[in-house]
Amino acid sequence: MKDDIIVTKDLSKTYFLGKIKVPALKPTSISIKRGDYIAIVGPSGSGKSTFMNLLGCLDPPTTGNLLIEGTDVSKLNENQLARIRREKIGFIFQKYNLIPTLNARDNIALAMSFSGKKLKMRIDRAENLLDLVGLSNRMNHKPSELSGGEQQRVAIARALSNEPKIILADEPTGNVDTKAGDKIMSILEDINSKGETIIVVTHDPDIAKRASRNLHIHDGEVTEADY
């Protein structure tokens, strides 16, 4: 039996617009198993990104608890959260979010620099990861010299650089064409087949269908969905 890698207990997030409460995520209790391939689906404004930010330890919850590999992260301070993000979570954003002034290899190496690895090791690993996503010939290209699909593959390599347990992908194919999107998804699935937990936020039903488990979000409410 696989263990739970993520457990939420009544996890919620409420934003305040002036004095008006906006419940972005209603109390949610779910558990995600190690090695799961999960798609979070929902229309825009439904609370997908809020849920994603909470799972990714980017945003502290208003109430409830979030356990990542058994550690309750809802009470951690900013620096401890940063360490969790660095060690356990790899992010892939819709807009790639590469550092524009660094080339592909250095973007990946930078992510590893925060964990204090030696430069030589970082460069070596960055090159291996670029090879994994099929971009070893684009190593010295700046993000602006890469296509959207290529940039997203660099972002995947970067997300993998610190050997995270969980990959969080927020609309990873949202800005690329179908063919490039397919390539990105197959890389992610390949990683998943090696035991990595993948959580993909999407509004594309075709992508959602490829996942082993779907979570629907509507008006801040998370429900289990089956196709």
């Binding site: 620096n79 940063a82 360490r83 993000r85 992010f91 550092i99 524009p100």
Partner: peptide, 16 residues
């Protein structure tokens, strides 16, 4: 700002 956000998202601490 964006760059800083990225760095923090991928694990940079405030100190970094």
């Amino acid at each position: 700002t964006r760059e800083i956000g990225i760095m923090k998202a991928i694990g940079a601490t405030n100190k970094d």
